[in-house]
Design a protein around this nucleic acid. Sequence first.
DNA 1: TAGAAAAAAGCAACATTGTTGCAAAAGATA
DNA 2: TATCTTTTGCAACAATGTTGCTTTTTTCTA
Lengths: 146, 146
Amino acid sequence: MPKEATIINNNRLIKLLKQNGLSITDSRKKILQLFLEQDGALSHGDIEKRAGEKFDRVTVYRTLQVFVDKGIVHTIPTADNSIRYALCKDECGEGHHHDHHIHFVCDTCNTTYCLDDVVTPEIKLPKGYSAGHVEVVVEGVCKNCQ
Amino acid sequence: MPKEATIINNNRLIKLLKQNGLSITDSRKKILQLFLEQDGALSHGDIEKRAGEKFDRVTVYRTLQVFVDKGIVHTIPTADNSIRYALCKDECGEGHHHDHHIHFVCDTCNTTYCLDDVVTPEIKLPKGYSAGHVEVVVEGVCKNCQ
DNA sequence: TAGAAAAAAGCAACATTGTTGCAAAAGATA
DNA sequence: TATCTTTTGCAACAATGTTGCTTTTTTCTA
Ligand SMILES: [Mn+2]
Ligand SMILES: [Mn+2]
Ligand SMILES: [Zn+2]
Ligand SMILES: [Zn+2]
């Protein structure tokens, strides 16, 4: 008999997937769970490792792509050429993300955080340029590594 | 007989390399030239293409690494998992970059610009986090694509 | 300016990461 | 449960990045 926490969690996963019009599959549940139980962001590699030997690499790629498309997770660019993914907490949906927070990468533990309370600043661009999305990534030392 | 412009350019390249304590080689001159005659930033792939069939892929990787180490070029993180490189115009040197400008990626032509006159904004972080470098990438439509 | 020493380039082999088409398996629907 | 639809796994492939070693080029000094 599974533990209470597991049941709740499983229901939450199913609800989230259904809300986004996705069919319920083991890989989607597992990967979504990884995001829910995680403070920071995850790279493709992290997910491959933590999802265990259970899923094919291709499935992870496709699942992440679906999650991004649906507005369930957003991507975070980093300097080391490895995209990180994190849960969207804002009202993102299919085809439009509205993540206006900044990101923080710890030099020490290498964790990537969404700083949901820090709003992206206004940037005054030179004449001729028009801004769409603004991405801010701060690198430094995080709360756990001071 | 080479043209005047070529000679000057060649001297400039040599000077720049010497200033940074690098020996003068064909690949370094060629790749540095690509940056000098380029408005936007270049990806590894761009450089491989434009440097022609003349150099080995490995040489391009190693040359870019040397340029970054020496503070001749800096890297720009992008959302599509392909690092761009651009000339440092600030006083960067071996082991320390001081690029405090923001970057702009055009949705239309996909060019990446260093906006040298737009200074990185101050970011107020939550308690416990200390900031090192701040990276701002704005995505939108550039001056040539309006 | 020739020759020795040092540095860089090229090459080959390999590792990692990402993509695509297709058949099998699993999920949704009625 | 049967049928239709979607997703997965697999295989093959492409692109990107890394490493060790040999050859070539550059630098340095006599
Ligand atoms: Mn985020
Ligand atoms: Mn720049
Ligand atoms: Zn940390
Ligand atoms: Zn443009």
